[in-house]
Amino acid sequence: MQARVILSISIVGLGLIIAAVPQNTTHPYKLTVSQLLEEAKGRQQFFSPDELADKLINKDPSVQLIDVRDQDDFEKFSLPGAINIPLTDLLNDKWKDILDQDVKMNIFYSNGSIEANEAWMITRQLGYNNLFVLEGGLNYWVETIMNPQKPASTAPNEELARYDFRQAAGSALGGGGAIQLAAPADQGRGAKPALIKKPGKKKASGGC
């Protein structure tokens, strides 16, 4: 047989095999370790309590809070609208639709920020997008939004304005800041965090 006929037949044979086998759609890792380190170093994932409070008061529909503590803690106290995905259950298939999406901003929180950060790293490593971590976790949330400390009267105006905002936000969200203040809830803060985009891949040039 001619060489070209043999070659044609073998290439078509390989083509038939590849057409017949199911496509491999498992993607064990989407980010390289150094890419992840780069993101973690940039602290892009952190969402400040003030930004979050602003979004919660405005009932921003793009926010999806995810509580990664266990169920007991979640039932005792949780942020408005949060859902409970305990860290130990993170890889359960039933959460995949919530975690792997491109519409909402998923904000993880825990008591501090360690567990939330762990959840962020794992899900980022899986290649999911739009994931954030509440900076300082619930502890910092309570400290800043629920029980803000009144700054000294000599403090700069921005600090006083931030205090007013936190007081108002705290009482609107059911916190301990009991005194009602009609402070406007916007101080130009809550600037939308830029959605995390995958770092641009290197351009490769092809052709002959």
């Binding site: 078509v12 083509g15 038939l16 590849i18 057409a19 496509q23």
Partner: peptide
């Protein structure tokens, strides 16, 4: 699927 398209291109 990628495989079917590949077969088509080969043919």
């Amino acid at each position: 699927s990628d495989g079917l398209a590949a077969l088509g291109i080969i043919l």
